[in-house]
């Protein structure tokens, strides 16, 4: 039984072991933003990280993207340690968050080209890649306009193209549909799904329950820095005896009072 499991499932692309991140704050003392979080994610899978604001989603993802270093614990992405081989990890990762903005004084094409160059790509490769991404994301119309004049949807599409210019094996999306209109949000969800079909490893954080239900293969619920539960949607439904994702979430984190308490902190 175990043998079969290993043969059909590819090796994990992301392996997080006991990740913990603490910050020192002058007023509140030591804050544990991420508390002993472990999970794995395989190619062709979308791992959904679900949590309220301030639950520790963004910090976890920043640890994966090597922007922050874990206080304790380790993380291996595509065979590289995020602390010891951060450059190799970043070459395999595309990171998109609300906090990763565009250069307003560059055009979309210049923006994507810059990140292609930083990834060590040649001019021809960048040119071909931009053509491909602009087609998939329907960006041709605004490709040569400056980013500071873009609508939210145009910005998000450009950001996605920037994230994917080097064709990374791992994609980390931190609330990518936040503040977008329905049509653009749908286009982005569709795009993320296509990434899975191509065998990419995707981590997708959100607090929109419907997106989790539609998109994610494995769902991890994070609360107060801790990964409180993890499993496929059917597994979670069974575990909490609830069909609805929102109800599952509330039960998993310990009721509405726990959410309110965490938000007030």
């Amino acid at each position: 039984m175990y043998l079969v499991y290993f043969v059909v499932t590819p090796n994990p692309m992301i392996e997080a072991h006991n990740l913990t991140k603490t910050f020192k704050d002058k007023k509140r003392g030591v804050i544990t933003a991420v508390d002993n979080v472990s999970f794995t994610c395989r190619p062709g899978q979308i791992y959904g990280l679900l949590g309220a604001n301030g639950a520790g989603k963004t910090t976890t993802l920043r640890l994966l993207a090597t922007l922050l270093q874990p206080t304790t614990g380790t993380c291996v992405i595509a065979g590289h340690d995020t602390v010891r081989a951060s450059e190799q990890v970043r070459a395999q990762v595309g990171f998109l968050a609300a906090s990763t903005a565009l250069y307003g004084r560059l055009t979309a094409r210049e923006m994507i080209t810059y990140f292609g160059e930083l990834n060590g790509m040649g001019d021809d490769a960048i040119h071909a890649r931009i053509k491909q991404l602009a087609g998939e994301l329907d960006m041709h119309e605004f490709l040569d306009r400056r980013c500071d004049k873009f609508s939210t949807g145009m910005k998000q599409k450009t950001s996605i193209a920037r994230t994917l210019v080097h064709d990374p094996a791992v994609m980390i999306f931190d609330e990518p549909t936040l503040g977008l209109d329905v049509m653009t949000a749908r286009a982005i969800v569709k795009f993320v799904r296509r990434c899975r079909e191509r065998g990419k490893t995707v981590i997708y954080s959100t607090h929109v329950m419907s997106e989790v239900e539609k998109l994610c293969d494995i769902i991890g619920i994070i609360h107060d820095g801790r990964l409180v539960t993890e499993g496929t949607l059917p597994q979670l439904r069974e575990r909490y005896a609830e069909p609805d994702m929102e109800e599952i979430f509330v039960k998993a984190v310990g009721g509405e009072a726990a959410i309110a308490a965490a938000l007030n902190r």
């Binding site: 970043r90 903005a101 565009l102 990140f115 930083l118 990834n119 920037r162």
Partner: peptide, 14 residues
């Protein structure tokens, strides 16, 4: 302030 610093640090360059 504009959020581009984090974007830049995501790139593999050291």
């Amino acid at each position: 302030e504009r959020g581009t610093m984090e974007t830049l640090m995501c790139s593999p360059t050291s």
